[in-house]
Design a protein around this nucleic acid. Structure first.
Lengths: 212, 212, 212, 212
DNA sequence: CATGAATGAGTATTCATTCAT
DNA sequence: TATGAATGAATACTCATTCAT
């Protein structure tokens, strides 16, 4: 079965002289354009060929940096989430009181989703359907994030600033749900929201509900 | 308000009343099996061939009743939403007081999503990415549904049962968001929720936040 | 994940008015051109696109008639082998004596391979590497064919026309091997052989070796 | 005749004697692992990356020693065939009589194929399809090998030990064919054959056919 | 000479939709 | 109106080979 090769070898394959690409930049560039394209057209709607073209790399290179297309999305997500979690951690430093920390948590979340529509869209709409997501590092990060909020709620209960009779899970649902609805309207309709105002309003409602 | 439902109540729900009966049955059958398959394997994961086979109709027939596969999903959604809205309207009859009506609204929503995982999954995860959705009748129905809740909230403010200083939009966000988070955990993890308990907990939180 | 479809649906896809193709003819035509191409360029060297183009059918049609490319080769082989076995059976009728029957067997084999280079090439060179071959109907047929020759040899021993001390397996090896070498030189070098002469010479040698 | 071998015997077998040693080792190592991999997974089934990795050389190095992957297979073949021809030449020394020499020829052939399944498999199944093979040194060697057997047959005719009326070509076909069939069953089915027994049986048949 | 990252051409198969009957 | 065979566009991934260092 040597035939196929034979055919290819018939003519010498000459291409334009290629220049090397600094590898690290390249990976970042791919992640950047992939995020933009995924944001614009969804996961299924974006082809690896499009990503490669937009990043100015040959298609084969994509698969050197990322084993599969799916690995690529997860890599985009992970990078963004990690940046966000670092940011969040910094934001929460030096803030006292569970409620104040929850307020900051909400603010940071809205602030980030506002700037990175990609995270909102993919976390809410795309990856949830992918069973692989639940084994991914991105999911781990989100789990921890989730637990962070649960932790803050319980902290509040312990320190007495949050009523002991609230159901922490439902509180989390309401907070995440409120954020998600707010962000979603924007993510889908391009109807931008004001982070400070939304934070104030969401906290206004939620705190009145849970304050001791 | 929910008036529009009332209007359509006079006649039986027949869209193309002149179509001969076998066709009508067939259409329903297709919608039924399509819903089941979409629920099980998602939109992309379900082929028109599978739907046709399961419905016992030739593949070409699908495209007589529905111009495209996308139209078919939307039709499934529309039918379910319409059934739901009829149900909701009935549930709300004879209930006095905005808060009581909102409670019933939440309960109905959770109750229905619990029984029709398809609506939850597709409304939250699939159709939102489809620009066509925003022109579809399904979206119109959801819009009006949305406005219904807004109406109830404003009603409450007017009748004095809800604080005048709440932001109605954010209240709606918190309510829908809370519902969605609750339903989502279930839709994705098969972790069933109890409708009555969840209603009670969600209302407990929300009402404490908005009660005058 | 409705996006991809959406994109495709954007423009109406209009093609040249297609004419129907009588299905049975088509299958045969595909088998014919596939045989020719496989013969010319081997299995790996032939693409499904080439086969489809040569047969004048759209590529998708190939996969309606044959589930996979591999199924297609086996189908070509099976058809040819079946035709050959029918032919052989007819040739052997009314011939008395194991040696005479073996001579006819050899002659038929050479005669057919001479006309159907494809069988020679694929049976000797290509399918043997394919594990799937050993489960295929084509292989079953060849097995039976093999056993037929072994049967004739044993028959000869029983009737006393073949020496009892020969190793039947090696006799078969020598016969098939002799045929194969003869056919192979031709199959590869386009150096045609004369069926009658080769039969005479091969039988001359072999019979002198095995005759009682 | 086998004379040519004798000529090369004076010096050790060094082709590019001026090459520095490490390169020579490397080349051998590559040939060794390539043979093992080709044997195990066939030509198409083996990637140059795998070969490079197994040989512990960078991929680029492969293409310094061998212009293409195809050149590499041929090189493996050539080396094995050369080793075999040297071996054969040695085996035939001091044997008198064409039939005795042919017997040794057959034995050596079977003995070698038995130990180097690679040669059997590639010569019978893979390279024959490659038009490049017929220009390769490996093919030259096999041609000469072929002619060697033809020479022995003619020798036998001249010395009167082989009947003058046999067709030398068909004798060769029967001998090679018999060997190939025997080896093939083993190469494909892992059904090992006994070299001495097979030699005896094959010679038993063939000699009875051609003995004067 | 040696390297190994970069390259991009190449390919089997699926499936929504059409349209000749 | 109903059919279902026919259609062909669309797509992720591999791997032999090159060439800048």
């Amino acid at each position: 079965m040597l035939i196929r090769r034979v055919c290819r070898e018939g003519g010498t394959v000459k291409k334009k002289a290629n220049k090397r690409q600094p590898s690290q930049d390249r990976r970042e560039r791919i992640l950047d354009v992939a995020r933009a394209l995924f944001e614009e057209k969804g996961y299924q709607g974006t082809t690896t060929a499009q990503i490669a073209a937009a990043a100015g790399v040959p298609e084969g290179t994509l698969f050197e940096d990322f084993r599969t297309k799916r690995d690529l999305v997860f890599a985009v997500l992970e990078r963004d989430i990690e940046v966000y979690l670092d940011f969040l951690e910094l934001q929460l430093r030096g803030i006292e009181g569970a409620l104040n920390r929850i307020r900051k948590f909400i603010w940071s979340h809205l602030y980030t989703w506002r700037r990175r529509r990609f995270i909102a869209r993919f976390l809410i709409l795309e990856v949830r359907q992918d069973p692989g997501y639940y084994q991914s590092h991105a999911h781990d990060l989100m789990q921890r994030y989730n637990e962070d909020l649960m932790g803050l709620i319980k902290e509040g209960i312990e320190e007495g600033s949050i009523r002991a009779d609230v159901n922490a899970e439902m509180v989390r649902n309401v907070i995440f749900g409120g954020i998600e609805q707010t962000a979603l309207h924007w993510a889908l309709k391009e109807d931008p929201f004001d982070v400070d105002t939304c934070t104030k309003e969401l906290c206004g409602l939620v705190f009145r509900a849970i304050q001791a």
